[in-house]
Computed example of a mutant assay.
Amino acid sequence: MIRNAIIDRNEENEMLDVCLLGTGGMMPLPRRKLTSLMTRYNGSNLMIDCGEGTQVAVKEKGWSFKPIDVICFTHYHADHISGLPGLLLTMGNAERTEPLTLIGPKGLVRVVSALRVIAPELPFEIQCIELTQPEETYELNGYHITAFRVNHNVTCYGYTLEIKRAGKFDAQRAKEQNIPLKCWNSLQKGETVVCEGNTYTPDMVLGAPRKGIKLTYTTDTRPVKAISDHAAGSDLFICEGMYGEQDKDDKARAYKHMTFKEAAQLAKEAQVAEMWLTHYSPSLVRPEEAVKEATDIFPNTIAARDRQSVELMFEE
């Protein structure tokens, strides 16, 4: 009974809640907010980009601002960061005191400092991580975050979020090695334990790592190999589809954005489970009418709408 209780407590958190809060690019529309993604895992919320209207979208979704622990920025064009000052003020008014981590390309401190002119006093600390390398990884609040550089007209990054999953705990092996019961929970979490003069390591009781959850998010870029490489095998690939119309190829190249077809080709190369298109041009009034441009190449494509949501589960 004790063993089951230990395992069940860990199994409860084997889900990643995902909500694409806004799907608009460049400017908000009456029924389309600017780009932002929010995820929830094990009591910690993470956000990627924070365009105008993000706060309203969070409220409409029924989620909370207070548990947001990490905000990642792809780049600093206004449609990706203009909602930050108001969000910080709202989080402060919610009596948040825990530190907030911001991740983004080089210049993050300067940009955030400028935006905070209208949000100068907050009851929590802001910790900034500036990205300078083509690829960087971080472990924060149960998220394994990989930032990878893409190809826009300013420095821009895509992000892969992974929830790693350790191998299954083998109680029989633990008993055979006389590992005290009080050490089991820590070992199951992947921690090394020193107890009664003995050192116990996770590999003594855990099987091979199991498949985790993987989500990749990228906007404002031309198609580059780094995207398909990092998106490979993702459960969900959220990708810019700035243009769905057939006559926009030249414009996409000129402004370093992507078409539906180009996004679909990346999804096909990466062999993802599902792709959501996002970051639509204001001229693309009904993206669902153009989605065949993508589904002809990658059938499991969805022209996402604001607050498109899913629960990504660990495989049994």
Rank of each mutant, 00 (worst) to 15 (best):
Pro202Cys: 12
Asn198Ser: 10
Pro120Trp: 13
Val117Ser: 08
Val193Leu: 04
Lys211Ser: 05
Glu121Ile: 11
Gly142Cys: 10
Tyr159Phe: 15
Thr146Trp: 01
Cys156Ala: 12
Asp203Trp: 05
Arg116Ser: 09
Asn198Gln: 14
Glu162Phe: 00
Gln188Lys: 11
Ile163Lys: 06
Thr192Val: 15
Val205Asn: 02
Asn151Val: 00
Asn151Arg: 12
Ala171Ser: 11
Ala171Arg: 09
Leu115Ser: 07
Lys182Val: 13
Glu121Val: 15
Val117Gly: 05
Asn141Cys: 14
Glu136Met: 06
Cys195Arg: 01
Ile179Thr: 03
Asn153Met: 10
Tyr200Cys: 07
Ile213Pro: 03
Asn141Ala: 14
Ile163Leu: 14
Gly167Ala: 06
Val154Arg: 13
Pro180Ser: 03
Lys182Asn: 09
Pro134Trp: 09
Arg210Thr: 07
Thr155Glu: 13
Asn151Cys: 10
Pro223Val: 04
Ala166Thr: 09
Cys128Leu: 04
Thr216Tyr: 00
Tyr157Lys: 03
Ala174Phe: 01
Leu181Gly: 06
Val193Gln: 03
Tyr138Ile: 05
Glu162Pro: 00
Thr192Ile: 15
Glu130Gly: 01
Glu125Cys: 10
Gly167Tyr: 08
Thr160Ile: 00
Tyr157Asp: 02
Arg210Ser: 05
Lys164Ala: 04
Tyr143Gly: 06
Pro202Val: 12
Val150Cys: 07
Leu206Glu: 04
Gln188Tyr: 12
Arg210Lys: 14
Asp203Ile: 01
Pro202Gly: 08
Gln188His: 11
Gln127Ile: 14
Val117Tyr: 09
Pro180Cys: 11
Leu115Tyr: 10
Glu125Ser: 13
Gly197Asp: 03
Thr201Leu: 13
Phe148Asp: 05
Pro223Thr: 07
Pro123Arg: 06
Thr137Ile: 07
Cys128Ser: 07
Cys195Thr: 05
Gln127Tyr: 08
Leu187Asn: 09
Phe124Arg: 08
Val194Thr: 15
Arg165Ala: 11
Thr146Arg: 12
Glu125Thr: 15
Lys189Asn: 14
Gly142Asp: 10
Gly190Gln: 01
Cys156Arg: 01
Tyr200Ser: 03
Ala166Ile: 09
Glu176Arg: 12
Gln177Met: 14
Val117Thr: 10
Asn151Tyr: 03
Ala171Asn: 08
Gly212Asn: 02
Pro223Glu: 10
Thr137Tyr: 08
His152Thr: 01
Tyr159Gly: 04
Asn141Trp: 12
Cys128Gln: 06
Ala171Asp: 11
Val205Cys: 04
Asn178Pro: 07
Cys156Trp: 00
Asn178Asp: 14
Gly167Phe: 05
Pro123Tyr: 05
Gly158Tyr: 00
Pro123Trp: 04
Tyr200Ala: 03
